[in-house]
Amino acid sequence: MVNYRYLGNSGFKVSEITYGNWVTHASQVGNDAAIATVHKALDLGVTSFDTADTYANTGAESVLGEALKGQRRESLEIFTKVYWPTGPMGPNDSGLSRKHIFESINGSLTRLGTDYVDLYQAHRYDYETPIEETFQAFADVVRQGKALYIGVSEWTAEQLREGHALAKQLGIQLISNQPQYSALWRVIEGKVVPASEELGISQIVWSPMAQGVLSGKYLPGQAVPAGSRATDEKSGAQFIQRFLRDDVLEAVRRLKPVAAEAGLTMPQLAIAWVLQNPNVSAALVGASRPEQLEDSVMASGVVLDASTLAAIDEALAPVAVTDPANTYEVSPKTRP
């Protein structure tokens, strides 16, 4: 079964393997298959589910709501997000304005079939809206009982500090950040993680397997497998391109004996690696087939010894991206 961790400086616990439906529901797989994977996640002990209104232009939330119908709501932790465009993409259909936040939370609750979400996240930082306006709207959402906690995604250390201070002034809790993080993409370690530890903010990390590259299925000098994420634009193919270099794939191949020595599969090693960071509360995993989850959840509770961690660093150090400057390039300077 899956272990639990506290999220930030709160009493709220989440399953350290959290199911995410970014590129699967209402996009990569049919609804029946999507619902089957959610039910499999529940059977395996996963109770935390992450989505966003923008995924499949609201479709992913609807599928998740259908999949969770009939489950005991109190036994679930449901997260969603606001920022990216939805609907016809009009001038107020994106960002973190008060208008968009209130319209988005109401739409999300309807699609998810719930009265509240446990965690409501700013999907990016909005440079076009005063942060005071955003956090006042978040505070009102919390006070209305539509969300219990507030989180953000891909915010810089400075943005986290500013948001945390405003949340405290308004009497609400900013408890999480959702960045990309893997053994190949470590840019949060330099500034974001230290600031988060100081503020009592946890990381819910996405792409712990570096878009599947750390599974070992992509090989240097060979074409990408047919039907893989690297060939499917709807599945985030653009995100994986940075890792599809022969030097990166050769470094990843050197992890196979490391995983074997630890008694783990390559995906398990990748997920377990991010969970060794004490500031990480959950690793987001997705699945297009139920059986994929059986492998992923076995990373929960794994403790990697010092020699295994050193071997991973030795294999990946030449190709891992560590520059904190990359955290400043994620949020668009203007709304999409």
Rank of each mutant, 00 (worst) to 15 (best):
G236K: 06
A26C: 06
Y55T: 06
S153W: 00
W206T: 07
M89A: 13
Y116D: 02
G221A: 07
E197I: 10
V224Q: 07
T18M: 13
I131G: 02
E66G: 04
S153V: 00
T322K: 14
F49A: 03
T47R: 13
D32M: 12
K333P: 04
P130M: 06
V152W: 03
G263E: 06
R111G: 01
V2I: 12
S153Y: 03
W206C: 10
E103S: 02
R186Y: 02
K217G: 08
V274P: 01
N326F: 15
G113Q: 05
G221E: 06
T327Q: 04
Q144C: 05
V252R: 10
I204M: 12
P324K: 08
S94P: 02
E189M: 06
A165C: 13
Y328K: 14
L112S: 04
S300C: 09
E103N: 02
A237Y: 02
N277D: 12
D115A: 07
E162Y: 00
F102D: 03
V141W: 03
A272D: 10
Q121K: 00
I175F: 02
L199K: 00
V142M: 01
L264N: 10
A183C: 08
G87Y: 00
V141E: 01
V117F: 03
A262P: 07
Y127T: 01
L304R: 10
S300T: 10
R111W: 01
E314Q: 15
R186G: 08
G20H: 01
Q169L: 15
V192Q: 07
L219T: 13
N3I: 14
N21C: 15
S182H: 04
I101C: 00
L170A: 04
T58W: 05
N277H: 13
R143M: 11
A317L: 11
S202W: 01
D246C: 04
N21S: 14
Q211H: 14
E314V: 14
K333L: 11
Q178V: 05
